[in-house]
Design a protein around this nucleic acid. Structure first.
Lengths: 103, 103
DNA sequence: CATATACATTGATGCTTGTCAATGTGTTTG
DNA sequence: CAAACACATTGACAAGCATCAATGTATATG
């Protein structure tokens, strides 16, 4: 069984329009913070805040190179989320269903 | 391209430990609210609140039968989330990558 | 070394969210 | 019809969150 606490924090990280926008921008591969910022309508501190949340939840990974921070999608992180949802949709066999009528 | 606004609200709905617990309980199939409540450490109004969020975001569907509300996972809703994540992980081809060095 | 650049951190502010007690609504049952 | 049951709604409150301006830190450059 997976860890609901960790999963909740990953889903929470995904539950923001700006952060989803960031992930879309990273679809093409690694990008540095300044270029992400160029394509968004938020200030630099706000972007930094969002990147921290995405990195802490292991959905994005950062790589420092001189002055620049390069961010990219974390395949492992995204796969964790995918697997969790897959497990949810895999219904357990009927025998395991502890259904009873309601009183 | 998918709707980030709708997706953000779905992820937001998934971003709560109690709500993930509820989804786990629904893995075996439909359950009525009273039985879900039995297995959780929250009050009835709080459960009702969570169920509303899950239904509004189309992750769970409800079915009224007399006094009872029966809830079950929405395959369509969960599939939307899965597809969104799949799209994210499908990297676009390198030619589409508008990468440039940072100034 | 002084300045500029890229990014992070801090502190403040308003909005959102999870929670509960109290109450409301609709349904069943005696 | 009255009481009991299952669930939803309301209102209040504290905690959490997104945002920004101001400031800090580390790196590159003239």
């Amino acid at each position: 069984m997976m860890d609901n606490k960790r999963m909740a924090s990953m889903f929470k990280a995904l539950g923001d329009e700006n952060r989803l926008h960031i992930l879309q921008l990273l679809r093409n591969g690694e990008k540095c913070a300044c270029r992400i910022l160029d394509e968004m309508q938020i200030t630099q501190p706000t972007l930094s805040h969002h990147m921290k949340i995405l990195c802490d939840s292991e959905i994005v990974v950062g790589r420092k190179e001189g002055k620049w921070m390069h961010y990219s999608l974390s395949e492992d992180g995204l796969e964790s989320v995918l697997n969790y949802l897959d497990e949810l949709m895999k219904n357990t066999k009927p025998e395991d269903n502890d259904y009873e009528s309601c009183r």
